[in-house]
Write a protein that binds this DNA or RNA. Sequence first.
DNA 1: TCATTAACACGGG
DNA 2: CCCGTGTTAATGA
Length: 214
Amino acid sequence: MMSIDNLRDKLSQIFERELVNEIISASELITVEEGAVLMDYGKKVKFMPIVISGTLRVMRKDEEGREIILYYLTNNESCAMAYTCCMEAKLSEVKAVAEDTLQIIKIPHEKLDEWLMKYPSWKSYVFNSFTQRFNELLRSLESVAFQKLDERLIRYLTNKSKVSGKSSIQLSHNQIAEEMGTSRVVISRLLKQLENDKKLLLYRNEIKLLSTFG
DNA sequence: TCATTAACACGGG
DNA sequence: CCCGTGTTAATGA
């Protein structure tokens, strides 16, 4: 868990001293357990979260009511969607769920605009967070539009092993299917195909990438 | 053509 | 037993 002093250090890496003080006095550091819902469809967004530790999953429903994952927020990241909602006093179009035990700072919405004027570091922080999300969404749009599912799966697995630094990935076919917005049948079939091609090995809840992968 | 949905059998934990 | 996995058949976009 994060103490106030640690928090101050952490925030000082991004923001100027005066803003750090304001953040600490104006906002609230909270811990929520896995599965907790921080934002939900149609609900008012009364604060903007900055993730201190843990992971926050942000998702959205499509026309048919299926949920797709927009992005994950980790270390020091904040939710661009929440930001726009707060500023415009709109209702949330996304749902945000704690992926594991999560610590966030709740920035009260009145402060967002004020700090934007007052603190250059806040402005660039917000701006960067938008840019980051935007680029990420562009990349996934590109992948949906131009890549077939098998290529997307290969890219997905490569990514997972890169971020974890391991060649084995501990996920069920179902979890993969959910994240990629498809059905398990398809994932199972594609994975089996890759196994036959000697690109990987399949176990229960585990996929081992071989050196021939990619 | 290729994804989705539903259904079923297998088997490991 | 429960759940993840492998497969198939029917249906749809």
